[in-house]
Design a protein around this nucleic acid. Structure first.
Length: 890
DNA sequence: ATACAAACGTA
DNA sequence: CGTACGTTTGTATG
């Protein structure tokens, strides 16, 4: 057991002076700096100390027994500012919401309360941590009692144990009050002995043991200091009476009452909303949503197991209740276009849990299960539904009625996490472990033999956990405005993506093989040329380390930009070196890089061709913090297009049998259009409405010429800048990219912003808003939390600012194409067309055109993509058709 | 065997 | 000192 005691008054008072009031006020003008500082410190201490019990002590008034004995006590302090005292009730509200007890006793100070509680806790053998800005509390420090003393405002604390006190004040903690009595305490208006500081006082205490010893030998002390001591002895003894903390107060609560309780979530929201503590609230929830040491217990499994050879399986009017929400877990696997499902575990809100082995079902059971799985009105909750949906589909079992996916829900709540493991989420949000509840006795337990049940029990536990988790995440989602996004966007997308994955895209395998051979030959030639150029062949051209040896030592070339381990050999740097030295090795090396990369890309594609001669990528819906999809195994979102040789790879992605052609439809300049819409900049909006070439239009404004007089050089500069803006590009970065001086780049940006002031204002406002709320939001309300916006670390802070600039733009584009996919898919179905979506590449959809549908499909795609969302600028869609992905480009 | 850095492909 | 990804290779660690 560990007790944490805080001095509410002294800590809040510290914060009041440490934090600038103008940064910590609500929109109604209420100052909150003291509350903020205290709460922030409280969160940190709770996190770092992980106490089991917590209490906060307050001063009630200045009329204390000390002031009664010594009227000058704490006199000379300026009156407490009303801006501070007005925050004390707010502080009480925060503590109440957090269910942390606070107490103040008339006539005594907060420290007396702390001393009393400490005394009792230590008597009971507990560990105590005290957090206060009042030095009198040093006397309480012992091997069981640690004191956290804030320094530098409230940003840091000193951890004072007996050794630390002794080191700092040269006396052990139990002598600290004697020392303070001798030296005096100016903040309490207690004068000490003139000319006696901590060193002299410590020396005396060392010599005579304690203050009583000094008093007993007061006549032996020599010198001026001794004289002063004798002259001020009464004052010293009075100081000692006053700084002795009272440790036997009669308190209205005991140690047990301070046990930590889970806080009142709704009240926390209400109070923190009122104080406009958005970032702090998120920090609170992020830190403490579930305490690690609260994790205990598992999931109860009840009801009957349904074996294929056993009981009749019923969902519906029977025991399970067809409309009751069920957690569902499908065991099995799926990747690259094939897989299998082994079993379905389910856990209903009615308490029934079950497990069905798909391999041993009777036809009757199969019928019941299939009809329930496919029933859109039978609500089901899964974790990462897509793969399980795919596994079921291999057995011809459609799955419908998914009302939540806990991985997607968790992603929408906090989109920047590396993974959304069910196990982690259960610990984090439910405070339990992903295991079966060890129930007392066998009541209610499933009648498994203990050795054959593990995978079955595990699946049922997961099903039960998913169901419970979905409720908690549903609340979190509601709090963060993500409910609609889940239901109307991400969930409907699951099925669309699943079908795209299953469909895959056809490739010309012979062409692919030929391409590999061609790239391999070119790569070998480049290698030979490179070796010849340096007169050796013992270098691995793929090793940056060995290349550095050749470039900078053997050939003595100028050093390039540093990396963590040496000097970069990236393509940019090699091109620079080639411009300087014209060494043939560099040309051959670059050629080798290019061709070997292409060869490897092709090789990877060959490996991933499935038996149906198609490539089936996997889309991940919960990776990109901005809301984009990602593609893996293989990644079909980074197939080369920029170079002629690279484009040859696109030419092997072809229309499949039974279809007429491939269609590629993409949004042109969608991010700039979103920028125009979100910023409301009239110039940029006009640019898109006139239909003129964007960069020509912008270039004309920036350079002050007629659009027809915009040169290619002007256009490319403006293009780089426009796109850079959405990434938080600096003048320095722009200058590097365009190979111009920083001054020129800055001038370009200034000119841009003076012509498109709305863009400048928008970008500025995005960061300000995100700093205040703690998150950015896309057009559909998809949030990205960026706590580093208030980091003390400049690099982290500026990095977060760039993310804040980019997230709403990239994220809104992601929202839009997801809406478009829904629209296109729905229209294809409602019009009974056979054409289908194959790929999504962020702003592009690749479709397979069924015979005779080309024209209708183009109209449908233009309509649905163009109308995905209403904006102040048109959404321009460009469409191309051809036998291959390359030919469909436009 | 696993983890990381460097490099490079896409939007 | 430009955002968001995934993959491969080499290298350093265990």
């Amino acid at each position: 057991m560990k007790l944490l005691l805080l001095d509410g008054h002294s800590l809040a008072y510290r914060a009041f002076f440490a934090l600038p009031a103008e940064n910590f006020s609500t929109s109604t003008g209420q100052h909150t700096n003291a509350v903020y500082g205290f709460t922030s410190m409280l969160i940190n201490v709770l996190r770092d100390e992980a106490p089991t019990h917590v209490g906060v002590a307050f001063d009630v008034s200045r009329r204390t027994f000390r002031a009664a004995e010594y009227p000058e006590y704490k006199a000379g302090r300026s009156a407490t500012p009303t801006e501070f005292s007005g925050q004390i009730p707010l502080l009480h509200e925060v503590l109440d919401a957090l269910r942390i007890k606070h107490v103040g006793i008339e006539g005594y100070e907060a420290d007396d309360v702390i001393a009393t509680l400490t005394h009792r806790a230590v008597e009971q053998g507990h560990e105590v941590v005290i957090c206060t800005g009042d030095r009198d509390a040093f006397q309480l420090v012992s091997d069981k009692v640690t004191l956290l003393y804030p320094v530098r405002g409230v940003s840091e604390v000193w951890r004072m144990d007996p050794a630390a006190v002794a080191e700092k004040y040269l006396v052990p903690p139990e002598r600290y009050s004697d020392l303070a009595a001798l030296v005096g305490e100016s903040s309490d208006n207690l004068p000490g002995v003139p000319g006696v500081g901590p060193k002299t006082a410590a020396k005396w205490l060392g010599q005579y043991g304690d203050l009583a010893g000094i008093v007993a030998h007061v006549d032996e002390i020599k010198g001026k200091a001794g004289e002063n001591l004798r002259a001020h002895l009464d004052g010293v003894l009075r100081n000692r009476r006053l700084n002795r903390l009272v440790n036997d107060l009669d308190l209205p609560l005991g140690i047990d009452d301070l046990q930590r309780a889970s806080w009142d979530r709704e009240e926390v929201h209400r109070v923190f909303d009122g104080l406009e503590f958005r970032v702090l609230r998120d920090r609170l929830f992020a830190t403490f949503d579930v305490e690690a040491d609260e994790v205990e217990g598992g999931f109860e499994l009840e009801g009957e197991i349904v074996h294929a050879d056993g009981l009749p399986l019923r969902f519906g009017d029977g025991a399970h209740g067809r409309q009751v929400p069920h957690g569902v877990v499908v065991t099995g696997h799926y990747r690259g276009g094939s897989g299998d499902a082994g079993a379905v575990a389910f856990a209903g809100a009615d308490g029934v849990t079950g497990y069905v082995d798909l391999t041993t079902l009777t036809p009757e059971q199969d019928e019941v299960l299939a009809s329930w799985l496919a029933d859109p009105t039978a609500p089901k909750v899964l974790h990462d539904a897509k793969e399980q949906l795919q596994a079921l589909s291999t057995r011809g079992l459609p799955l419908a009625g998914i009302t939540s996916d806990t991985a997607l829900a968790a992603y929408l709540v906090r989109p920047d996490q590396r993974s959304y493991d069910l196990e982690d989420l259960v610990v984090r949000h439910l405070g339990r472990e992903l295991k079966a509840q060890e129930a007392a006795g066998d009541q209610g337990m499933l009648d498994f033999a203990p050795d054959d049940d593990t995978s079955e029990r595990e699946a049922m536990v997961r099903a039960r956990a998913v169901l419970e988790l979905s409720e908690v995440l549903g609340e979190r989602l509601e709090e963060t405005g993500g409910t609609d996004l889940l239901r109307d966007l991400e969930l409907p997308l699951v099925d669309i993506l699943a079908r795209m994955e299953r469909t895959g895209i056809a490739v010309d395998e012979d062409a692919l093989t030929a391409l590999e051979a061609d790239f391999a030959a070119k790569m070998r030639q480049a290698q030979l040329d490179a070796y010849e150029a340096i007169g050796r062949s013992d270098v691995n051209l793929g090793s940056p380390k060995q290349l550095q040896e050749v470039l900078f030592e053997q050939l003595g070339m100028p050093k390039t930009k540093r990396t963590k381990t040496g000097y970069t050999t990236d393509a940019d740097a090699l091109a620079d070196l080639f411009a300087k030295t014209e060494h043939p090795f560099l040309e051959a090396l670059l050629r080798h890089r290019d061709t070997s990369r292409l060869r490897v890309t092709v090789e990877g594609l060959i490996k991933s061709v499935a038996l149906d001669r198609r490539i089936h990528t996997t889309y991940i819906q919960t990776i990109a913090a901005t809301g984009r999809l990602s593609s893996t195994d293989p990644n079909l979102q980074n197939v080369p297009i920029r170079t002629v040789e690279g484009r040859r790879i696109r030419d092997v992605f072809v229309v499949g049998e039974g279809y007429e052609s491939l269609m590629s439809a993409d949004y042109s300049q969608i991010e700039m259009r979103i920028m125009a819409h979100l910023s409301g900049d009239e110039g940029l909006i006009e640019a898109f409405r006139t239909g003129e070439d964007l960069h020509r239009f912008v270039g004309a404004r920036v350079f002050g010429v007629e659009p027809e007089d915009v040169t290619a050089a002007m256009r490319s500069k403006v293009k780089a800048m426009s796109y850079g803006l959405a990434y938080g590009l600096s003048a320095f970065g722009l200058s590097k990219q365009l190979n111009i001086s920083t001054g020129e780049a800055q001038g370009l940006m200034d000119e841009y912003f003076s012509r498109f002031g709305g863009v400048r204002d928008y970008l500025r406002e995005v960061v300000v808003e995100a700093r205040a709320t703690g998150y950015t939001a896309t057009m559909l309300g998809r949030r990205r939390y960026l706590p580093d916006l208030v980091s003390d670390n400049r690099q982290r802070r500026e990095g977060a600012e760039r993310m804040a600039l980019n997230a709403p733009i990239q994220g809104s584009a992601a929202d839009i194409i997801k809406l478009a996919m829904k629209g296109v898919d729905a229209a294809l179905r409602s019009e009974g067309m056979a054409s289908r979506i194959l790929l999504q590449v962020h702003d592009e959809l690749v479709l397979e055109v069924a015979p005779g549908e080309r024209e209708a499909l183009e109209a449908l795609v233009r309509r649905e993509m163009g109308a995905a969302v209403a904006m102040d600028v048109p959404l321009d869609v460009s469409v191309g058709v051809g036998r291959s992905w390359h030919d469909a480009a436009h």
